[in-house]
C-alpha cells in the first residue's frame, strides 16, 4: 500500500515539477535563471518577460492565426465528417463500406509520408503562406479519424427513427440536421476536443507551408523563438505559457470531456 502511494506521488511530482519550473522561470530574469536555475524568484515575480515578448514579437498576430486556423479546421472537419458518417450509416451497404474503408485508410498513413508531394501541390495551387491553405490541409488530414469516430457512433443510433422520418416526408438533409446531429452530440463534442488539441498544437504543416511572419501560428512561432532566444529560457517559457494557455484553461474546466475526447479515437478501434 505504502509503495503504491509512494509511486503515485513520484509520478505526480514528475508531472508537477517541470510544469512549476516553466511557470516560475517565466517570471524570473535571465540573470537569476543562470545564477540559480531552480530557485524561486528572489526579487518577486518579474512580469517583464511577458511585456517583452509582446513587444518583440507579433504575439497577438500568431495568437489570432492559431485561433482562426483552429476554429475553422475543427468546425469544417466536424461538419464534413458528420455528413460522411451520416451517409455511411444511412447507406449501410457496400458503397458505405467502401467509403468507410477509403477514409479510415488515411489513419494509417503518417503525415510525413505525403508531405513532399503535398508541399509541391500547395506551391502549385498558391496556397503556401495562407491560412486558407492550412485549413484545407488540416481538414483533409483529420477527416479520417473524425469519420471513424462519428461513424462508429451514428451506426448505434436506432434505424427506425430515421425510417419513420422518411415516411413522414423528411429529406436526408432534414434527418441529418434535425435528428442525426443532435443525437450525436456526445460523440461530436468528444471529436471536437480531440481536433482542437490536434490543430492548436500542429507544427508540421505551418513548418512546411508558412514562411511569412504574418501567417505563422503559435507552435511555429515558438519553434523559431529558439533560434532567436537560444537558451533564454525565461523568454521561451513565457512563450510556452502564452501558447498553452487556452488549452490549459479549457482543460481545467472541461477535463472530463478532454479525457473522453482524446481517447475516443483510440478506444473506438
Amino acid at each position: 500500500m505504502l509503495f503504491r502511494k509512494f509511486s503515485l506521488a513520484v509520478y505526480a511530482l514528475l508531472i508537477l515539477i517541470p510544469l512549476l519550473m516553466v511557470a516560475l522561470t517565466s517570471v524570473k530574469t535571465l540573470q537569476e535563471t543562470f545564477r540559480d536555475p531552480l530557485g524561486l524568484p528572489e526579487d518577486g515575480f518579474q512580469w517583464s518577460n511577458y511585456s517583452a515578448i509582446f513587444e518583440e514579437q507579433t504575439m497577438a498576430g500568431y495568437f489570432m492565426n492559431s485561433t482562426i486556423v483552429t476554429l475553422f479546421s475543427v468546425f469544417l472537419t466536424l461538419f464534413f465528417a458528420s455528413m460522411i458518417a451520416f451517409g455511411i450509416s444511412r447507406l449501410n451497404n457496400w458503397m458505405g463500406n467502401i467509403m468507410f474503408g477509403l477514409f479510415t485508410l488515411g489513419m494509417m498513413v503518417p503525415a510525413q509520408v505525403n508531405m513532399v508531394p503535398l508541399y509541391s501541390l500547395m506551391l502549385d495551387l498558391n496556397l503556401t503562406n495562407s491560412l486558407l491553405g492550412l485549413i484545407l490541409v488540416n481538414i483533409a488530414v483529420t477527416l479520417p479519424i473524425a469519420v471513424f469516430i462519428l461513424t462508429g457512433f451514428m451506426k448505434t443510433l436506432p434505424k427506425e427513427l430515421f425510417e419513420a422520418s422518411t415516411i413522414d416526408g423528411a429529406g436526408n438533409w432534414q434527418i441529418y440536421t434535425k435528428l442525426a446531429l443532435p443525437l450525436s452530440l456526445p460523440s461530436l463534442s468528444a471529436t471536437a476536443i480531440f481536433l482542437f488539441v490536434m490543430h492548436w498544437n500542429d507544427l508540421l504543416y505551418p513548418l512546411l507551408f508558412i514562411t511569412d511572419n504574418a501567417y505563422k501560428t503559435l507552435p511555429l512561432a515558438l519553434l523559431e523563438f529558439q533560434g532567436e532566444y537560444s537558451t533564454n529560457y525565461p523568454m521561451l517559457f513565457t512563450g510556452v505559457i502564452i501558447a498553452s494557455a487556452p488549452m490549459v484553461i479549457a482543460y481545467v474546466f472541461l477535463q472530463r470531456f478532454f479525457v473522453a475526447g482524446m481517447t475516443a479515437g483510440a478506444l473506438k478501434g
Binding site: I15, P18, L19, M21, V22, V197, W200, N201, L203, L218, P219, L222, L223, Q226, Y233, L236, F237, G239, V240, A243, S244, M247, V248, Y251, F258, V259, M262
Partner: peptide, 14 residues
C-alpha cells in the same frame, strides 16, 4: 493526462 494537451514544441522546450 495533462502533458497530452501540450504542444510538442512546448514539451521539447521543457
Amino acid at each position: 493526462f495533462f502533458p497530452t494537451i501540450l504542444s510538442s514544441v512546448s514539451v521539447a522546450f521543457i
